[in-house]
Amino acid sequence: MGDQRIKNIILEIIAIVAPDAEITDVKTDIRLRDQLDLDSMDFLDIVMELRKRYKIEIPKEEYPELATLDSCAAYLGPKLAGVAAT
């Protein structure tokens, strides 16, 4: 799965867990919580949604890897390598 696809998936999930977040103009290198008013519960929801959709596990100590869209793509890339880009 390509980087861009992963970033889009994260934005799709954010739109579900935080319906009020304005996701049209998110910078890829700035922390998501600084741009979108996300709290720690929102990040937990993202982790749960990724597990549900793609059967991937993100250990608690690695949650900081989801800080920006760029870091999400770098971190999730290998985990989603075998997953079809549906």
Partner: peptide, 8 residues
Amino acid sequence: VIVANEVD
């Protein structure tokens, strides 16, 4: 919710 995540 936090614990549900652990259980899941």
